[in-house]
Design a protein around this nucleic acid. Structure first.
Lengths: 341, 341
DNA sequence: GTTAGCACTCTTAAACAGCGAGTGCTAAAT
DNA sequence: ATTTAGCACTCGCTGTTTAAGAGTGCTAAC
């Protein structure tokens, strides 16, 4: 268990390091007004904190920097009480200068705002369109073989894909199919359409459609979804201005990581509501080992549907950033729910 | 006018610099087997070529590097005759490993292939959907006030947007409107829909629709397009591995440039068919002053509809890159036209 | 328990020397 | 009239040395 003094010194040190990005020595700490101990005393405490794994040295005679464990402890126990954050709320309303009409624009702007304000990189993971409910679908022939299938969701989102029409299918049959789907499956989540058909509609199909056999293959083609979350970026190059990445060989993997869709999706996805902080290797990817990722979820009708995230160096301004992310995600939630009333 | 020998030396020097990215001195050139002159002679020629503006020195006693004018001359007059390029054609067919079904996938893959092969950054500027012809349109209400308007083009592309329904409009009127549009405007380019209506359909509207006044505003909302070209990137971070950009302060503006949509659109747009090369300041943007941009256009039914571009350092492997881009753009054209038969 | 003092470590920056690649010029060779 | 050998000179780069500065850990005294 840490003593009060150790807690205090640890916090002061991390605060200082976050601010100045340079190893902090006993002298620097002792210079603070609210410190009454001598450098020598502090040195002893620092040595202890290092033994406990909260601090590290860059070389034998350097000052200390926080270890990953140190940051974790800082975030969990030392963050100046978050009540301050209330003072920041309300700002974010002002931030949306342009009126945003559609969800996509909201996500895009949120990412930009967040990265501008923090100078880190931000990412908004859009809602998975496949979780939205079917409002209406339609198949529009382009040529004799090719058609476009269109699915409109209750949120006004449009999914579309090109499909190949089997020769065997007759236009009137196709029309019947579409009618049945619209009548029976409105309100069902896109992703569930196929299973719902399997379970509930085979009888209906048999009754109304001639060539039920071939139809099965066609339906699979029609309703085979691939992931459809969208990513919105802000400040992709902000990493370059972080002192710890002022080295090409260090940023390169990072920037490459940012460009890799599936890695980013994984990084930024979170099933939990609220705020998650992952520090350094907690991100479980080499390229992110010197970064922290903060995910905040936004909701619709109380349900988690996506996240807004911030990616920065492990030495992040956690305090500022957490409150910002918190209020911004709430603001997003509000606006999002305003759309659909 | 340059002598044969000057031409030869200039080409050898630029070839060497492109390969090794280091100032080239008289000794290096004289070491080549096919060079019969002594370093001293070459020094004299180099001095002349420098006076003529084709070469530069990095400092008083350094070797020479090509100037922008030098590259321009090289590209215009010294490029080993392009007949070689034929040998490369055919490769590109092999490159598309996955079967691509939709145009978007084709663009995306083309950009990736090109950047992988060259280690530069590539961009495909997609066709402007608004130049495609209307196949079918539809308005699907989401709530009492909001609806989604959907436009399907002859190429199978789907444009959609949310619109606000005026209270004054009746569902039956809306249906009539959509019917008229579909009957009268199929085959018209999206971008032209509005003017076509103004010119030709006002009479029809007056006849069939009750509230023609309000309809005008609504139509404007419905048919007010904003630019819709899409950009597909490949190798965004490849710039980082170019020796001339091995410096954060030099790459940063470049990467920022790549992320700025409208700048990129301008950079990569070209109205001309065929191949365009812009070297250094010819790109007319500070951030691109050390880059060359090569645009190749791809066509559909013989019409220029978009470009595939390569962005690299002014010291590019022009020869290789030009032939690649040439064959790749042709390959794209072929596949694109295969889609729509 | 705290702190002053001191020897020791490591990093950083500056100063300096020497090497190598390259140039331009002059004078001799072709 | 070209071409080339020779030479003095310029830069940039690398490695070494040096000195300063920041910091530590330990010991002994307070």
């Amino acid at each position: 268990m840490l003593t009060e003094r150790q807690l205090f010194i640890l916090r002061v040190l991390i605060d200082d390091y976050i601010k100045h990005v340079e190893p902090v020595g006993s002298r620097t700490i002792s210079k603070r007004e609210d410190i009454t101990y001598s450098p020598a005393t502090i040195r002893n405490e620092l040595a202890d904190l290092e033994d406990l794994g909260f601090l590290e040295k860059t070389h034998t005679s350097s000052g200390r920097i926080p270890s990953e464990k140190g940051y974790r402890f800082y975030v969990d126990h030392l963050l100046p009480s978050l009540s301050m954050k209330e003072s920041e709320i309300g700002h974010s309303e002002l931030l949306f200068t342009e009126k945003v009409q559609e969800a996509e624009a909201l996500f895009d702007q949120s990412a930009k705002i967040l990265s501008d304000l923090t100078n880190y990189t931000s990412v908004v993971l859009g809602p998975n369109a496949l979780d939205m409910k079917l409002k209406h679908m339609q198949i529009i022939p382009i040529s004799s073989q090719v058609a476009v299938a269109i699915f409109v969701t209750n949120t006004g989102h449009v999914e579309n894909r090109q499909i190949v029409l089997p020769d065997t299918i007759e236009p009137s049959e196709l029309e019947k199919l579409v009618n049945i789907l619209n009548e029976r499956l409105a309100g069902v989540r896109l992703i569930e359409l196929n299973t719902r058909i399997q379970k509930e509609l085979s009888a209906v199909f048999k009754k109304h459609l001639k060539d039920y056999q071939n139809m099965g293959v066609f339906l699979d083609q029609l309703l085979l979804w691939s992931k459809k979350e969208k990513l919105f970026y802000g400040g992709k190059t902000n990493m370059l201005s972080q002192p710890e990445f002022r080295d090409l060989d260090k940023v390169r993997p990072l920037l490459d990581f940012l460009e890799t869709r599936d890695l980013m999706e994984k990084l930024v996805s979170s099933t939990e509501k609220g705020l998650t902080i992952r520090i350094g290797t907690e991100n479980e990817h080499e390229a992110m080992k010197n970064c922290s990722v903060i995910n905040a979820s936004y909701t619709m009708h109380g349900k988690h549907i996506g996240t807004i995230s911030l990616i920065g160096p492990t030495r992040m301004e956690y305090q500022k950033v957490i409150s910002l992310l918190d209020s911004l995600s709430k603001e997003m939630t509000n606006r999002l729910n305003d759309f659909s009333n």
